[in-house]
């Protein structure tokens, strides 16, 4: 049993993946609480899926994958804001339009490059792919995200709970929403290597959905979210180490579902009503 746990640790790539998933779990757990509470799951889905054309373009044209991903996420966010500025189009339709358009662009770019095989790891993640540059990137984005969440904690909490009151005291909720979208884009870009463009949404949503069933206040929700993210992430890495056919993203998402289902079944009500 001990050997089962220690065996992967002898490999350098596993260590890199482990550090990456720990950092991503902390960011995803904290950020995810806002995503789930503010019902932003769909827009997060759009942002993470839109990474695909960015990454495909980056590979085709030979610039850094992260710049491509970040650019695509920014285009999606502004596109959604621009499309939903017309009152006839509701925001979720705008999200649906941008999501499918960006994804179609991604598929188009991939077929242009005639290299479907390289893109499986992009779509579903691969622990082998994490190199030292990725670690630096994840470290940097995690620092930015956690610092912003820490500094804006009371404003974000207030704007998520009571938008009108936030507006009344002058804590601009619209600006805060944009900041949150930028942070989500950053976090999604950083974790694309591990979990893949298709499954990054799960990283934000499943652990935090578990946290909401358990926590009494926002900080507790974040804490439980981080805990579940770490537990599921690390076990997912082990799973994908031993079953090398299984992409790490898929393994991690499967491992997230176990604590979520357990909490959903066992914890009827998180506190007495």
């Amino acid at each position: 049993m001990i050997d089962f746990l220690i065996q992967p640790l002898r490999e350098d790539f596993f260590w890199r993946a482990l550090i990456a998933i720990l950092l991503s779990s902390v960011t995803a757990g904290c950020l995810g609480a806002y995503i789930v509470l503010r019902r932003m799951a769909f827009i997060t889905n759009a942002l993470t899926h839109s990474i695909l054309p960015g990454v495909a373009a980056a590979i085709l044209l030979g610039f850094s994958l992260y710049w491509g991903a970040l650019g695509a996420a920014l285009i999606t966010a502004t596109g959604i804001a621009w499309l939903s500025a017309r009152k006839e189009i509701s925001e979720d339709s705008a999200i649906g339009i941008m999501l499918s358009f960006m994804f179609a662009m991604g598929v188009g770019l991939i077929s242009l490059s005639h290299a479907w095989r390289d893109f499986t790891s992009l779509l579903f993640g691969s622990i082998l792919a994490v190199d030292i540059n990725d670690l630096w990137m994840i470290g940097l984005t995690s620092t930015i995200i956690l610092l912003s969440l820490r500094l804006l904690h009371k404003e974000l909490e207030l704007a998520s709970f009571d938008e009108e009151y936030a507006q009344l005291i002058g804590a601009k909720p619209a600006v805060l929403r944009m900041v949150l979208l930028m942070l989500i884009a950053l976090a999604a870009v950083a974790s694309v290597r591990l979990v893949g463009a298709l499954l990054t949404t799960a990283l934000f949503i499943i652990p935090s959905a578990t946290g909401i069933l358990l926590g009494k206040n926002l900080v507790q929700v974040m804490g439980w979210g981080v805990g579940v993210a770490i537990l599921g992430g690390v076990s997912g890495l082990y799973l994908s180490f031993y079953f090398s056919q299984l992409p790490s993203g898929a393994a991690i998402v499967i491992c997230y579902m176990i604590p979520y289902l357990a909490v959903r079944v066992l914890v009827r009500q998180s506190y007495p009503r």
Partner: peptide, 20 residues
Amino acid sequence: PQLTPFFPLQLKRCVQMGTY
């Protein structure tokens, strides 16, 4: 008041928001 339903927030913290 348009409050986010089921937001995990205890009453005291809500009252504290007045000091913001």
